[in-house]
Design a protein around this nucleic acid. Structure first.
Lengths: 143, 143
DNA sequence: ATTTATATTGCAATAGAGTTGCATAAATAA
DNA sequence: TTATTTATGCAACTCTATTGCAATATAAAT
């Protein structure tokens, strides 16, 4: 979620033509408080303006490749998409409810990860750290 | 990976009939140094004794449900399976190479995660923490 | 030991998520 | 305007996983 990002600018800076559909996909992701699945995004977009599933996949691939968006794995089958960390928002962990399938963002301070020693010695390249908590959310616990 | 686990005992303690196939699936996972995909497991098992894909899926579901085995998500599409933490092995993070798709276990000390404050206040239930590093492994970096 | 019940496995068909190839449309450059 | 490149759509397909039901095998009861 971001109130400060200029999405069109982000696209241009990433060397992507700021087409209507790309902009809409990025906005939907950026304006949402939690990561969305492809079908979430497709459904939202399709409500206002018809768009093909494949186009959504391709736009997401581009946005992930250009690091504007993060692909986040769930305890379930589909990937979720959220705005990538930038000057306005830090990386943060997520909580996945295995009952309702909803994924929430946790604030960056909830969990502190320390791994400098490891990073110094690791012979490969690390691009990304993903930290996810799986469980049952407050609402689903009630039932 | 475990040299101390008695797999048959683990099954019985978990209230699962220790059938030949269940035992073999659990052994294959337990004897391996890194998490395996369903097709890794199926191929290995099929070499010695024919087994149906679906049976492997079902056995894995059971083992995960009974918490003998952990289902670990990759940056890719398939789930991987590794021995669940128990008295002989602690929970640990994983490294996933996005080029060759190989998943490695990292030793538990490489990364320290601190989140007691968060856990105290969280209104839902947390069952599991998954920490994964994505990147490119040493071998794939060379090419 | 034979029958009955229950639990496990196999097989075929299906679902869901994501990808590919090629055609069409839109945008940029010449 | 025409040519070229880029973006989108459509259909078919792949891969991973699941479901329903039939066939076996195992355990329980008589």
């Amino acid at each position: 979620m971001c109130n400060q990002c200029n999405y069109k600018e982000l696209l241009v800076e990433a060397d992507l033509e700021p087409t209507e559909k790309r902009l809409r996909v990025l906005e939907i992701i950026g304006n949402n408080a939690f990561p969305l699945s492809v079908s979430d995004i497709h459904d939202t977009l399709d409500r206002s303006k018809s768009i093909n599933r494949v186009t959504v996949y391709r736009i997401l691939d581009l946005l992930v490749e250009k690091e504007l968006v993060d692909r986040i794995s769930t305890g379930g089958r589909a990937s979720y998409y959220g705005l990538a960390p930038n000057e306005f928002h830090q990386a943060h962990p997520h909580f996945y409810c295995k009952i309702c399938g909803r994924m929430d963002c946790l604030s960056p301070e909830t969990v502190s990860v320390q791994m400098t020693g490891f990073l110094k010695n690791f012979p490969g390249r690390i691009d990304k750290l993903e930290l996810r908590l799986d469980g049952v959310c407050k609402n689903c616990l009630k039932q």
